[in-house]
Design a protein around this nucleic acid. Structure first.
Lengths: 155, 155
DNA sequence: TTTTTGGTTCGTTAATTCCCGAACTAAATA
DNA sequence: TATTTAGTTCGGGAATTAACGAACCAAAAA
């Protein structure tokens, strides 16, 4: 595949990833920025390059970048004698991908326990169902921690 | 705790769960309905009871219930000689809780592989980061399947 | 000192989502 | 046959969100 073709494919991928991010609740512009920083060969973009490349206004870029930094998904560097910010995706400890999931499972687990506590009939359909779910989320969390531990041991 | 107090707590919990569901992208009314069906002692509600209990319009109840049924979260039964529908939460195979997560991991995994394929420099920062993430998601998926298998074996 | 650069903030507009009431339908009852 | 019951569908208004342009600011350059 020649360079031109490859770059076209990269731009298509930005659209795909953008739409995917929207579906996961991210706002359109923020999704496009993430995608841009992830797929292109150049992995550092200045503010103006982002504005230009995605055809968005400076204000949208500014707010979206602020959000992405708050979410710890993007960061920037500056170079002495150069006022520009060089934005790039934030390289994180890879398990961060699952921490959201983990926390959501912990939340659900707690919630189901509170429901059970307040039920009149400790053998109701819902109670039995929630007990099942509690067992399974506990198992999941336990397994997850083991996996993590193992991973770091074998490093 | 006496019954009245307990029921008050249940109603509070409906609010909490409702807000939690909203944060996970569910629409407010749908979240309240789910919460109602989950926490109250009565675990089957007719359409009119839902409307009454949550103080919502029939039309909102109708659309929200349609969505919840489409998402496989709620179902109803009817009894011969009674035109009412008795709505309740759908009891599912408990691993359904993780299937969304699993699918989202598979998607991310694929996406990162497509990004890598299109990069000019196979040693770039992003590429190395994504390779790490691919390893970790693979490990996660593998582990998850094992956990599931084990679970059913020990049943 | 004035101008340019690299952004941020604010107010407005456009688009979307959410929910409601009113009209409607289909089945059961009177 | 007329009325009631148990919902559904449709159109519109309110609230929320997304993105924009214009005005602004602080630091550097001219």
């Amino acid at each position: 595949m020649n360079t031109e073709k490859r770059i076209n494919k990269q731009k298509e991928l930005i659209e795909t990833i953008g739409r995917q991010s929207e579906q996961e609740g991210m706002q359109p512009v923020a999704g496009r920025i993430m995608a841009l920083l992830m797929v292109m060969d150049k992995e550092q973009f200045t503010f103006d390059e982002i504005v230009e490349e995605l055809n968005i206004s400076k204000s949208s870029a500014s707010t979206a970048l602020k959000i992405l930094q708050l979410k710890d998904m993007v960061e920037y560097e500056t170079h002495p004698g150069d006022r520009k910010r060089y934005f790039h995706i934030k390289v994180q400890e890879p398990f961060y991908l699952f921490e959201r999931v983990k926390n959501s499972m912990i939340e659900k687990n707690k919630m189901m326990k509170s429901i059970i506590k307040l039920k009149a009939d400790p053998e109701s359909k819902n109670v039995l169902f929630f007990k099942d779910l509690i067992r399974i989320t506990d198992l999941f969390l336990e397994n997850y921690e083991k996996m993590k531990e193992n991973f770091f041991k074998n490093q």
